[in-house]
Design a protein around this nucleic acid. Structure first.
Length: 366
DNA sequence: CAACCGTGGCC
DNA sequence: TGGCCAAGGTT
């Protein structure tokens, strides 16, 4: 095929040479050739799953300041982890982060294991993250395959098989190129190249240290790879969400179920998320078992729009101002002053609801 | 295997 | 403006 298959060492050497002069300085990254703290590597790798470097930066610093060691994190309440994670998304990562910290503390004496298998058995650590930690933190010659490296390999060999079926083929090819020494630096270098040069669109091939080895570059069809299946249409779900405020200004929050969408995070009570928007009357009936409220003009606020991985959501916020502190029609939950929302595990969707309510002023009395 | 699971930035 | 995409893992 092309030269990298026949000449593994020149390929990895070219990559590492490039890295020594072009490596980005990132908060979790040590100098080339220096082993970083496995706790830092783990924390950053979990945060970086499907998340950009720019987004992760401040969260990484915040977590390290709050929990300097994995034992500190293990000792923290899950809600503190979720609160700190709020806004980062994919909240199962935060729940698994906590589980993993506990497992490392209790079952591994507070030290991360260095073997691929032991790492794979930990919560939230899959094939990519296990290989990344083993290579970067423990200098083991494991093959790291993330989205960047998939793209680089797919272009290098012009792999026509669509993802995710191509994953095995790509991993085999990547494995043949992984160097015995400095596999961690090598992996980070490939990811740097993927993020800055071998980008999904408009790749900067003239800056690439392995341009000459790339089959897609030679054919001039880099952007065709990796081949991906067509996207599915996202349905839209709609609901009424309630900002229920007591006379003392505290607002009702509820905790979502442990698993599933926004699992374990806080929310404003809402009607079920259905395909069709529910009427305000029906929403009041569903939430309070009573529609005995007069609806005046201006009581509803701007529609909150949010897109999740697999559906769009539209929430119609309705503000309810309670006349009495206690009202048995109101569901159970936690009453929180809006000035304390920042210390709560409110996902971005719910922050959008806060913004919509603060921007508007219409309300209903109950 | 395919569905599920967030969010922000880019063009 | 909206689909696409990002240092994936779990079920």
């Amino acid at each position: 095929m092309t030269y990298p298959m026949r000449a593994q060492k020149p390929f990895s050497r070219a990559i590492l040479d490039w890295y020594d002069s072009h490596a980005r300085t990132l908060p979790w990254r040590s100098l080339p050739g220096v082993r970083p703290d496995p706790y830092h590597v783990w924390l950053s790798e979990i945060m970086l799953q499907q998340t950009t470097v720019v987004t992760v930066g401040p969260y990484f610093e915040k977590f390290l300041a709050a929990w300097p060691t994995v034992a500190d994190m293990a000792a923290a309440p899950l809600d503190d982890i979720l609160t700190a994670w709020a806004g980062l998304g994919y909240y199962a990562r935060a729940r698994n982060l906590h589980k993993c910290a506990i497992a490392v503390t209790k079952e591994h004496g507070g030290r991360f294991p260095s073997s691929l298998d032991a790492l794979l058995s930990l919560p939230g650590i899959g094939p990519y993250t296990a290989a990344a930690i083993a290579a970067i933190a423990f200098d083991q010659p494991e093959t790291v395959v993330d989205g960047n490296i998939e793209r680089i390999i797919a272009r290098l060999y012009r792999i026509e098989t669509p993802l995710p079926a191509a994953k095995k083929e790509i991993t085999v090819a990547a494995d043949e190129l992984t160097p015995e020494k400095r596999a961690g630096d090598y992996a980070q270098c490939l990811m740097d190249i993927g993020a800055t040069i071998c980008t999904p669109r408009n790749p900067k091939c003239d800056q690439c240290p392995v341009e000459k080895a790339c089959a897609a570059r030679a054919a001039g069809d880099m952007e065709r790879f990796p081949v991906k299946p067509p996207k599915k249409v996202k349905p839209t779900r709609r609901a009424v969400v309630f900002w229920i405020e007591r006379p003392d200004g505290h607002v009702l929050l509820r905790r979502r179920p442990e698993k599933g969408l926004l699992g374990g995070m806080m929310e404003f009570p809402s009607t079920d998320w259905r395909e069709e928007m529910i009427s305000i009357d029906a929403a009041l009936q569903e939430m309070f078992g009573s529609a005995a409220l007069r609806l005046d003009a201006g009581e509803t606020l701007e529609l909150v729009r949010h897109t999740f991985t697999h559906f769009h959501l539209q929430l119609r916020p309705v503000v309810i101002r309670l006349k009495n502190a206690r009202d048995n029609r109101v569901p159970e939950g936690e009453w929180v002053s809006s000035s304390d929302f920042s210390s709560r595990a409110l996902p971005t969707l719910m922050q959008k609801v806060v913004a919509a309510v603060e921007k508007g002023q219409g309300s209903l009395a109950l």
